[in-house]
Every structure is written in structure tokens, then in C-alpha cells.
């Protein structure tokens, strides 16, 4: 006799599912240090939003390639809630959220944690300088970035790989800036320039697996991390890598993420991480990685430009279809 007041389990025993272990932490591609990953960027994919964009990095070659996927949607300018005070500028808010399934292996909670709050604040700083907030009095512009997949982990929970600096969060922030900026351009919100995010890092050039092992050992043995890092520098050559990925397998000594407005040649955000200049030339090294990050973001800017242009041409074609021949002729003239 079954208990009908409760939800009963199955009569037979069940076997818990066994998942294959993911192999996302493999070093897969060896790009040249100055080559950026290929970016897929498309705007206007979220119909209810005023503007939206989707960014994937790198364009996946196989279905199992770990990628960084982000969507961004922009709402506004819309009226501020009546509880707020009068402001002659638009109020720009940016919110970055990781999906629960974005980190493989460990699900993220729904509640905003410190990492998300920190990245949201940096994102709104990076975008705030570019948007012409003075043109939209008494209104709010809301930017939402949702991270769908982040390349096998963020490195914020203690799974540091290789003893170096983890650039997972930096590349999330940099791509979030680029994606959100494309969405703002798609929304047609007036802005001074588009912001593109870029990351660069100083890495220890590895002679091979043997040397990598040795470095790791020296890190483990040497309690004084400065000594260990000096040891690392003596073992290998330090080179600049543009757009380093956490799955590339580099040991990153220092990294910088920037938000850069290429047309105005202005930085909106600089975030550096790691330690630099043990020989006393830290300013040179900081300049070197920030310049590297600027180079990376200039490359990303070209992709944003193309994505925004592509959408505009699509809009022109739609207009031609809607309004008949006269406008389509006009549109063609404008396109050529």
C-alpha cells in the first residue's frame, strides 16, 4: 500500500548519474602572442531591449571548445522612478551577472556576489565616460550584461592555475565592455565614442613542459613569493601576450585590462593585476602591458565597428522593403 499523501520515490532503486570529467583546462591553441582570438559579435538580438549584442570569443572551431559568451542588453533612456531626485543627466547603471551554468563544474548562486558587484561597478565606470548623459535629462539608461559561459572558470575561487595571475575575470570584464558598447551603439544612444575592452599580460615564456614543472616546484618550495618570482624570471624570458586566455596555459606574471575609446584616444578604465618591476623598471612594464591592452582593444574596436555597420545595413534593407522603391534606391546610394 502506497502513501498517497506524499510524493513517493520510484519503487526501484536509482543510480546517480555519472558525468564524464570535463577537459576544459587543456591548453588547446597556441596562438602567436600578438594575435587576438577571433570574435563573433552580433547586435540586435534581444527584441524587447532598445539595443542588444551577443559576443562569443573565440569563434568555436569544435563544439567542445570552451568559449566566453556574453549577451548585453540596453534599456532606455526611460523615465527615472519618481522616488529619485531631479538630475539633468541620464543615470547610467550597468549590471553584470554570471549565469548559474556559466562556470563549468561549479554552479554559481543567483544572488549577486562580490565579484559581480565589483565587475558591475567597473563596467559602469568604463561605459559612463562614453555615453553623452547630458543629452538625456531625467532619464535612466540601464545596461545589463549576462555572462553565459566563461571559458572554464574564473579563478576567483582559489583554483589558481600555474601560480600566475588569473586573467579570467579580466577577459570577462574586457569583453563585457566591448559587448555593452556595441549594444549602446545599437540602441542609438548618443555617445562620444565606442569603448572597446582589451587585455594584455606579461607571461613567462616556457621552454617546454619540463621548465613549467620546475617553475611550479620553485613556487611551491619558495615561501617568499618575491624570491620565487625572481627565480621565475631568471628561468624564462618575459614576453607580452595580447588577449591571453585562461585556458592557454600561460603563467601570467602581470596583466592589464583597459577600456579604450580609439577615436578619441582616451582610456576609460585601467585595471592592472599581478606584480611588476622587480628589477626597478616597474613604470616601463606597466606602460608596456597597458600599451599592449590598448593594442588589443584597438583590434576589438574594428570588430565592434563592423558589427554595428552590419546592423545598420540590415536596417537600410528593411527600410527599402517596407517603403518600396524610392527609399531602397536612396538606401543603396547611401550604402555605395
Amino acid at each position: 500500500m502506497t502513501d498517497r499523501r506524499r510524493i513517493n520515490g520510484p519503487l526501484e532503486g536509482t543510480i546517480p548519474p555519472v558525468f564524464l570529467t570535463s577537459s576544459t583546462h587543456k591548453s588547446i591553441i597556441k596562438r602567436s602572442p600578438t594575435t587576438l582570438r577571433k570574435i563573433f559579435l552580433k547586435t540586435g538580438l534581444t527584441p524587447p531591449a532598445t539595443g542588444s549584442a551577443f559576443l562569443e570569443l573565440p569563434t568555436p572551431s569544435t563544439h567542445s571548445t570552451p568559449t566566453l559568451k556574453l549577451t548585453s542588453s540596453v534599456y532606455g533612456p526611460r523615465p527615472l522612478p519618481s522616488s529619485t531626485t531631479f538630475s539633468s543627466n541620464a543615470r547610467l547603471t550597468a549590471e553584470l551577472k554570471f549565469s548559474p551554468f556559466s562556470t563549468p563544474g561549479r554552479r554559481r548562486g543567483y544572488i549577486r556576489d562580490g565579484v559581480e558587484r565589483d565587475l558591475s561597478a567597473q563596467l559602469s565606470i568604463a561605459l559612463g565616460k562614453s555615453v553623452a548623459v547630458g543629452k538625456y535629462p531625467k532619464s535612466a539608461i540601464d545596461v545589463f550584461v549576462s555572462v553565459l559561459d566563461c571559458e572554464g572558470g574564473l579563478g576567483d575561487a582559489g583554483d589558481e592555475a600555474g601560480g600566475g595571475v588569473d586573467v579570467g575575470l579580466m577577459s570577462v570584464l574586457a569583453t563585457a565592455i566591448s559587448c555593452a558598447s556595441a549594444a549602446i551603439a545599437d540602441a542609438g544612444i548618443e555617445c562620444f565614442d565606442l569603448v572597446a575592452g582589451g587585455v594584455a599580460g606579461l607571461v613567462l615564456e616556457q621552454g617546454g613542459v619540463v621548465e613549467e614543472d620546475r617553475v611550479e616546484k620553485s613556487l611551491e618550495v619558495g615561501q617568499d613569493s618575491d624570491d620565487a618570482r625572481r627565480g621565475m624570471r631568471k628561468n624564462g624570458k618575459v614576453t607580452l601576450v595580447l588577449d591571453p586566455s585562461p585556458i592557454d596555459g600561460y603563467i601570467i606574471l602581470a596583466a592589464a585590462a583597459v577600456g579604450y575609446m580609439a577615436a578619441r584616444d582616451e582610456l576609460t578604465l585601467v585595471w592592472t593585476k599581478g606584480s611588476m618591476g622587480w628589477d626597478g623598471d616597474s613604470t616601463d612594464e606597466v606602460e608596456r602591458i597597458v600599451d599592449g591592452a590598448i593594442t588589443a582593444s584597438t583590434g576589438v574596436r574594428l570588430v565592434i565597428n563592423e558589427a554595428v555597420k552590419e546592423r545598420l545595413l540590415l536596417g537600410l534593407k528593411e527600410m527599402g522593403l517596407i517603403r518600396g522603391k524610392a527609399v531602397s534606391g536612396d538606401g543603396d546610394a547611401a550604402m555605395s
Binding site: Y136, A187, G188, G315, E318
Partner: peptide, 12 residues
């Protein structure tokens, strides 16, 4: 001018 027919203008 923006040609997009879906969101032609953002007017306040």
C-alpha cells in the same frame, strides 16, 4: 540619422 525601422528614434 539612424535608418533602423525598429528603433528609429530615441526622443525625450
Amino acid at each position: 540619422t539612424r535608418p533602423s525601422p525598429s528603433h528609429p528614434l530615441l526622443l525625450l
